[in-house]
Amino acid sequence: MADQLTEEQIAEFKEAFSLFDKDGDGTITTKELGTVMRSLGQNPTEAELQDMINEVDADGNGTIDFPEFLTMMARKMKDTDSEEEIREAFRVFDKDGNGYISAAELRHVMTNLGEKLTDEEVDEMIREADIDGDGQVNYEEFVQMMTAK
């Protein structure tokens, strides 16, 4: 299944994987998964984290390695993001709930994920998604960005 991913997608997933893999040992533990999910405003229980890991832990060693992570991402993409997942993601970014993602809100979430971005990089990300040019990202623009192939 992971063989249907483009090189660009694999590179993006590698970057995402390293955000989860806090200690850089090449595997994601339940603790690391929990840290990232909490930084995104989720509050999973230990059991939920274990279930999430077990779902993709092909070799049964209790952690997720990069090939397992790729399989999980490929699977998720095949079920292409349901509207509800996209709306949920939008809410994570839209901290003040005004229906727009500002540069400050984007920077806040990315920083929580451990991504240190310059102001230019954040502005560039907003510009790429900002179709109507108002300097922020509304829900429609967010959907376009998330579903762009």
Results as ranks from 00 to 15, higher is better:
Met125Cys: 04
Glu121His: 05
Thr147Tyr: 07
Asp96Trp: 06
Gly99Phe: 05
Asp51Thr: 06
Phe17Tyr: 04
Val92Pro: 07
Thr63Ser: 06
Met145Tyr: 08
Ala47Gln: 05
Met72Cys: 08
Asp57Phe: 06
Glu88Lys: 11
Asp130Arg: 02
Lys22Ser: 11
Glu88Ile: 09
Val122Ser: 15
Glu32Ser: 15
Glu83Ile: 01
Leu40Pro: 08
Lys76His: 10
Glu15Lys: 08
Lys22Leu: 04
Ala89Pro: 00
Thr118Ala: 13
Asp57Cys: 06
Lys76Val: 08
Asp57Gln: 08
Asp3Gln: 15
Asp57Lys: 09
Glu15Tyr: 09
Thr35Met: 02
Ser102His: 10
Gly133Asn: 10
Val122Asp: 06
Pro67Val: 10
Ile126Asp: 06
Thr35Cys: 10
Glu120Val: 12
Ile64Ala: 09
Phe66Arg: 05
Asn43Leu: 07
Lys22Arg: 14
Asp123Trp: 08
Ser39Met: 10
Lys22Cys: 13
Met52Asn: 15
Asp25Gln: 06
Ile131Cys: 07
Leu33Trp: 00
Ala89Thr: 07
Arg87Ser: 07
Glu46Ala: 10
Phe93His: 11
Glu128Arg: 02
Arg91Val: 05
Leu5Ser: 14
Gly34Phe: 05
Phe142Lys: 08
Thr111Asn: 00
Gly133Leu: 02
Ile101Trp: 01
Asp23Gly: 13
Glu120Met: 03
Thr27Leu: 02
Leu117His: 01
Ile126Gly: 00
Thr27Lys: 04
Asp21Ile: 01
Gly114Arg: 05
Phe69Glu: 05
Gln42Ser: 06
Glu55Asp: 11
Ile101Thr: 09
Ala16Val: 12
Gln50Pro: 03
Asp96Cys: 15
Glu12Ile: 02
Thr71Leu: 15
Lys149Thr: 07
Glu85Ala: 08
Asp132Gln: 04
Thr111Pro: 07
Gly34Tyr: 05
Lys31Val: 02
Glu32Val: 13
His108Asn: 13
Phe90Val: 01
Gln136Ala: 09
Glu32Gly: 13
Asp51Asn: 08
Glu120Asp: 10
Leu106Arg: 00
Ala16Leu: 11
Val36Ser: 07
Ile86His: 08
Phe69Gly: 00
Lys95Asn: 04
Leu40Phe: 02
Glu124Phe: 06
Glu85Asp: 07
Glu124Thr: 15
Ile10Asp: 03
Lys76Ala: 14
Glu15Gly: 12
Asp81Pro: 01
Met110Ile: 09
Ser18Asp: 13
Thr80Asp: 07
Asp23Trp: 07
Glu8Gln: 01
Leu117Lys: 01
Asp130Leu: 03
Glu83Gln: 03
Ile131Gln: 07
Tyr139His: 12
Thr111Gly: 05
Met37Tyr: 07
Gly41Glu: 15
Arg91Asp: 05
Lys31Cys: 00
Gln144Val: 07
Lys78Gln: 13
Glu84Thr: 01
Val56Ala: 12
Leu113Asp: 00
Glu105Val: 14
Arg91Ile: 03
Gly34Pro: 05
Thr63Tyr: 00
Arg91Leu: 11
Asp130Cys: 09
Met37Trp: 14
Gln136Gly: 01
Lys149His: 08
Glu121Met: 01
Met52Arg: 08
Ala58Leu: 01
Glu68Gly: 12
Phe142Leu: 06
Gly62Met: 09
Thr111Arg: 01
Gly41Ile: 03
Glu55Asn: 08
Tyr139Trp: 10
Asn138His: 11
Ala148Ile: 06
Asp81Ile: 06
Ala74Thr: 11
Gly135Lys: 06
Val137Lys: 02
Glu46Thr: 02
Tyr100Ser: 07
Val92Glu: 06
Lys78Asn: 06
Thr35Gln: 11
Glu15Leu: 14
Arg127His: 03
Asp65Thr: 15
Gly60Asp: 14
Thr35Ile: 14
Glu140Ser: 07
Phe69Val: 09
Asn43His: 14
Phe142Glu: 09
Val36Asn: 00
Glu120Cys: 12
Met125Glu: 03
Lys78Met: 00
Asp94Gly: 10
Asp65His: 03
Arg87Gln: 08
Phe66Gln: 05
Ala129Lys: 14
Lys95His: 14
Arg87Tyr: 12
Tyr139Phe: 13
Glu12Phe: 05
Arg75Glu: 14
Gln9Val: 03
Leu113Asn: 02
Thr118Gln: 15
Gly24Thr: 09
Gln4Tyr: 10
Gly24Ala: 11
Ala104Glu: 01
Asp134Cys: 09
Glu140Met: 13
Glu68Ile: 02
Arg91Gln: 10
Arg107Lys: 14
Glu15His: 10
Met110Trp: 03
Glu68Lys: 12
Glu48Pro: 00
Ala11Glu: 01
Ile53Phe: 12
Leu33Phe: 14
Glu46Trp: 09
Met72Ile: 11
Asp25Met: 07
Asp96Asn: 13
Glu15Ser: 14
Thr35Val: 02
Leu19His: 04
Ser102Trp: 15
Gly24Asn: 04
Phe20Met: 06
Gly114Thr: 04
Glu128Val: 14
Ala58Gln: 01
Glu32Arg: 01
Ala58Lys: 01
Asp123Glu: 09
Ala58Asn: 03
Thr30Asn: 03
Glu121Cys: 00
Glu32His: 15
Ile86Trp: 06
Val122Gln: 00
Ser82Lys: 06
Glu141Tyr: 02
Ala89Arg: 00
Thr71Pro: 14
Leu106Tyr: 06
Gln144Ala: 00
Thr6Arg: 02
Ile64Met: 11
Ile10Met: 07
Ala148Ser: 06
Leu5Asp: 05
Ile10Ala: 00
Asp134Trp: 04
Asp65Ile: 06
Glu105Met: 07
Arg75Gly: 13
Asp130Gly: 10
Met73Trp: 09
Asn138Ser: 14
Pro44Trp: 08
Ala74Val: 12
Asn98Cys: 07
Ile64Glu: 04
Phe13Trp: 10
Pro44Asn: 07
Glu55Trp: 13
Asp21Asn: 10
Glu140Lys: 11
Gly60Thr: 08
Ala148Thr: 14
Gly34Asp: 02
Glu115His: 12
Lys149Cys: 08
Leu5Asn: 02
Phe90Ala: 05
Glu84Val: 13
Met73Phe: 15
